[in-house]
Each structure stands twice: as C-alpha cells, then as structure tokens.
C-alpha cells in the first residue's frame, strides 16, 4: 500500500530520515522540471529544487496536515521561483535562451550553429523548442507559473489557486490569458496552426 505524503511528513517530523528521502524521490523530478520551466536555467533550477526540499525539511516541525502536502510543496517552489524571477528582472538577467536572441528580440541563428550537424528534422525540432521556451518566458510571472502548473504538472485549477493564493476564477482567467498570449506569440513565430484538434 502506498503511504500518503502527509503520513511521510508526519514520520519526517518524528525524525525519520528515510520518510523524507522517500518524499524527495517522489517529487524531485516534478520540482526540478517545474522550476526549470519557470526560470529557464537548469543549474539554478537544481539549486532552487534543493532549497525547496531543505525548506520542507526545516519546516517539518511546524507542519500541520491541514492541506495536501503537494500543494504546500508547490507553494514553496512557487515562492522561490517568484523571488528568482524578480531578482533576474532586477539585475537584468533572464533565462539562458535570452542569449540566443539579438537586441530586437529575434532569434540569433548563429547561436544555433552548434546543432547544424544534426539532421534537418532534429534541428527544426530544437529550434521550435527554443521558440516555445522563449514564448513561455515572455509571459507575465503569474500567467507563466499557472500555465506551467496546468500543462506540465497536471495540477487542477483549485490546486493552482491554493498554490498561487488566489481564487479559482482568477486562475481560470490567468490560464486563458496565458494561452491566448502564447497562441499569438507562437503564430507570430510560425508554430502551431496545424488545425488537427478534435472537438
């Protein structure tokens, strides 16, 4: 039988390190990917993921199983991501992909030269991935976090609302605006519009 996260957290509070290890192994993949997609820097994402789990460990003694552990964990990760995004904006830094654009914000194809040895399809795919990343990075903070949580982390709207500290209708509107913005950006970049969706 699968032990619940809350149960593991209680054990962790009692000083059981193996319970904490199990929790980290359960969520490490999700948290690293979430932070990486939010800030766009792999090495920083690794540091922030470690920081997230250490904060969980540190506040284990104050943990009350009133809400789902997953929501609490994402709340910590979201706060760290927001701080990082603000720091980067303050210091004029952005994701690594920004180095691939020129002053006008267009893709600098010279940077992509590294992938030129790849077959055409792979090259195209790589380029497309960079463009999608760029589009996501250009979204406002809350829209970006909300759309990442719904698309990649498969969180429900109420869970996102709990994590971001807003209402479900606000999350609904955030995600809709994020998708609209992304749609327009991707159309401008020439991605999407294959019209193969099924009702």
């Amino acid at each position: 039988m699968r032990v619940s996260d809350e149960e593991l957290m209680i054990r962790c509070r009692n000083g059981d390190m193996s319970a904490f290890e199990l929790l980290v192994s359960r969520y490490q993949n999700a948290i690293i990917n979430f932070i990486y997609r939010s800030i766009g820097d792999y090495h920083r994402a690794e540091d922030l993921s470690q920081e997230t789990f250490l904060r969980v460990f540190k506040s284990a003694s104050r943990y009350e199983p009133k809400a789902q552990f997953k929501n609490w964990l994402y709340k910590i990760a979201v706060n760290l991501c927001k701080n990082e995004i603000r720091d980067r904006q303050r210091h004029g830094l952005s994701s690594l992909e920004d180095f691939m654009t020129d002053e006008e914000g267009k893709i600098n194809y010279a940077v992509l030269r590294d992938f030129s040895q790849m077959p055409d399809v792979l090259y195209e795919k790589k380029e497309q991935q960079i463009l999608i990343r760029q589009a996501i990075d250009s979204l406002p903070e809350n829209q970006r976090l909300a759309i990442i949580m719904v698309t990649y982390q498969n969180l429900r709207y109420d869970e996102i609302a709990n994590t971001l500290g807003c209402s479900v209708s606000a999350v609904k509107s955030l995600i809709h605006r994020a998708r609209q913005n992304l749609k327009n950006l991707l159309l401008e970049m020439g991605i999407g519009g294959s019209y193969n969706a099924q009702v």
């Binding site: 490490q28 990917n33 991935q129 998708r179 749609k183 991707l186 019209y195 969706a197």
Partner: peptide
C-alpha cells in the same frame, strides 16, 4: 483548434533529467 495546438506545442517541450547525485 488554435488553443489546442498551443497546448500541444507546449507539451512537446522535453523534460529535463534529475542529476544522479541530487537525492
């Protein structure tokens, strides 16, 4: 359909691997 395509395009992004020594 445009929104669905956007969602599908987003899902095409590859996920990153967890470093071996992370845990």
């Amino acid at each position: 359909m445009l929104l669905m395509d956007t969602s599908e395009a987003m899902k095409s992004l590859v996920s990153v691997a967890v470093p071996d020594n992370f845990l």
